[in-house]
Amino acid sequence: MTFPSRTRILGDHAGALPPTGVSLGLLLLRLMLGIIMVGHGTQKLFGWFGGPGIDGTAQFFGAYGYPAPKAMAFIAGLSETLGGLGLALGLLTPLAAAAVLGTMINALDVTWDGGFFLPKGVEFTLLVAVAATSLALTGPGRYAADHYLPVLRANRLAYGVAAIALALVAGAVVLLIRD
């Protein structure tokens, strides 16, 4: 059994688009993750979908020791909403993934004691964080707005690693300023 070469699969040039099946898989992942994050973000920002809105989210952040809880609620809601929109559209995918990942780093800290497979468990938050990280590294595929931004296509891995580093630093800084 012979395996196709990387050149045959990805093409001859740097930043080649992934095969159609891979791109369709990435599209499905981006759409679902993006829609879920937009939903969670708008719950925080506007109280949509039965969410607490800014004031309720601020109370939550205050209870967990975050300074300026209303500002933190706004930042979290905006990060989830705009990051989710970016992922769904495949627009500035590394930055959108960083917005989601940075928020999930703090959510992981809050949910970590919930264990796995429990009502307030960590598995959903962990799945979102890993999915965002994966999209930062792979790029959005050919069915994305980023397809029209050649610089992101050609430097996909470098931008992905930089976005993950940004998310880790931003998430850690926010964790460090908590009481």
Rank of each mutant, 00 (worst) to 15 (best):
L26N: 02
A158F: 06
V169R: 02
M72P: 03
V38F: 09
T103H: 05
A99K: 05
L157P: 00
L166E: 01
G25A: 08
I36P: 03
F116H: 03
D146M: 05
A170E: 01
L45A: 01
M104G: 10
T42E: 06
L28S: 15
F61I: 15
D179L: 10
L29H: 04
G114E: 12
A71Q: 13
I36M: 11
L89A: 10
L118D: 02
G160Y: 07
T2W: 09
V38W: 00
R153Q: 15
S79P: 03
I54L: 13
Y143G: 04
F60K: 09
A107H: 02
G47I: 12
L157Y: 06
L33Q: 02
G11L: 00
A14L: 15
L85D: 04
P119Y: 08
L101T: 05
Q43T: 09
G11Y: 06
E123F: 06
V128T: 09
A96C: 09
E80M: 10
N106F: 01
F46I: 04
T103W: 03
P52A: 14
L95D: 01
I75Q: 00
G34I: 14
M72D: 10
L168V: 06
A145D: 06
Y148C: 04
T57H: 05
L108I: 14
V22C: 06
V100T: 13
T2M: 13
A68G: 08
S134N: 03
V173S: 07
K120M: 11
G41E: 07
G15R: 15
G15S: 10
K70C: 12
S79K: 06
I164Q: 02
T133D: 06
G50W: 05
A16Q: 05
L33N: 01
T7Y: 00
V173I: 14
P67T: 15
L127S: 13
F124L: 14
A63S: 15
V128L: 13
G114W: 04
L85C: 11
R6E: 14
A172R: 08
L135V: 15
R156H: 05
L127H: 04
G25S: 13
I177M: 14
V169N: 10
T103Y: 12
I36H: 09
T57V: 04
P69S: 12
G41S: 03
I35N: 02
A165L: 15
L108Q: 12
R142H: 01
I35P: 02
G84C: 11
V161T: 03
Q43K: 15
A107N: 02
